[in-house]
């Protein structure tokens, strides 16, 4: 393989293409469904307001879901990119490392146990808080275990084991939980961007947006970090602060999405690679917007497939993302000579 570099012009075109893909995916997700909404109807609902049944579907079901998928995908992709740079390992992502399952476990505790007694129903914000705690808890354990481990494959296995452990505890909680709560939890755990209220969306949009902007300001140290901690240190990076910030942001992004949509597999792992390979660079200043746009477009399309492939039955979104994500992991493992 002899790679040639891309000119800034080529990259600009790529970004335009990514952006167009996001817009196209959003449009498709808006108009396609069990109740099709034509483009002209879409314009009239958005433009002039309408109180038709379709307007209700659009405002209460379609649009929140479209926005959630785009936002969730972007956040997962950037979270995965951060983790890959942090561990300098191409086969990690929030799902593979067990961060998503850690978030799931804590959400299970809230949804299934009596912890939620005293609340009317399950507060979405409590879910969010639980997911964040679960994500940070798992990440902390992984960091403690891997403090002296350099091998990428070992890290991968430790992440898988963390996933199993979290899953095991979650299943015990499920076994002891009340039927009605289990049903609710299982639906959530399937993973779906549906059912979010506008209020939840605004929280996701606000926090997620801030975090994504924050990540971009870390571009410079992220690039230095590619050479390893010692080189980064020797170039003037404040390593302790920087490590803390990456972990903080990566787990927050993954935790927020998990709280909102349940665990979504492989987006965080596969998308950064697709961005890197298409832009042909690891420069964070290009990779962050690239991963963000690609994550949004791909997650959005996966959500469309999940909704439509066995319509009217909806399959979990992870079923779709895993189908293209898992082969990418295998492929990377097979030809990892240059990266690990």
């Amino acid at each position: 393989m002899n790679l040639t570099t891309l000119s800034p012009r080529d990259r600009l075109w790529l970004f335009i293409a990514f952006g167009a893909a996001v817009v196209a995916a959003m449009m498709l997700n808006t108009v396609i469904g069990s109740v099709p909404i034509s483009l002209s109807e879409l314009w009239s609902i958005i433009g002039h307001g309408s109180d038709s049944a379709n307007a209700d579907i659009l405002w209460k079901i379609r649009l929140p879901r479209v926005i959630a998928a785009v936002l969730g995908g972007a956040m997962l992709a950037v979270s995965g990119m951060l983790l890959q740079i942090f561990f300098r390992n191409p086969i990690v992502g929030p799902f593979v490392l067990g961060i998503s399952s850690g978030a799931t476990l804590l959400v299970a505790m809230v949804m299934l146990s009596t912890l939620s007694l005293g609340f009317t129903g399950v507060s979405p914000h409590l879910n969010t808080l639980a997911a964040l705690i679960g994500a940070y808890g798992t990440m902390t354990i992984i960091l403690l275990i891997t403090a002296n481990i350099k091998s990428g494959v070992t890290l991968l296995i430790i992440g898988l084991m963390m996933g199993y452990l979290n899953g095991a505890v979650t299943s015990i909680l499920v076994a002891f939980a009340e039927r009605e709560k289990v049903k609710q939890f299982v639906l959530w755990q399937f993973g779906s961007f549906s059912g979010l209220s506008w209020q939840e969306l605004f929280v996701l949009l606000g926090l997620g947006g801030l975090l994504l902007i924050g990540v971009y300001t870390l571009s410079k140290p992220l690039n230095a970090f590619l050479l390893g901690e010692e080189y980064a240190l020797s170039m003037g990076v404040n390593i302790k602060l920087f490590r803390f910030l990456i972990v903080l942001v990566a787990c927050a992004l993954a935790g927020l999405v998990t709280a909102a949509a349940g665990p979504v597999a492989f987006i965080g792992l596969a998308v950064p690679h697709m961005a890197r390979l298409s832009l042909k660079t690891s420069d964070a200043r290009l990779l962050i917007p690239g991963a963000l746009l690609l994550g949004a477009a791909i997650t959005s399309l996966c959500d469309l497939v999940a909704r439509q492939i066995f319509s009217p039955v909806e399959v979990p979104i992870s079923a779709i993302t895993a189908c293209f994500g898992a082969p990418i992991v295998i492929g990377l493992l097979l030809k990892r000579k240059t990266s690990l």
Partner: peptide, 15 residues
Amino acid sequence: LAVVLTERNFFGMFT
């Protein structure tokens, strides 16, 4: 002060 260490494998794509 600059350093050159023994590691020559780096993660990522750069020219």
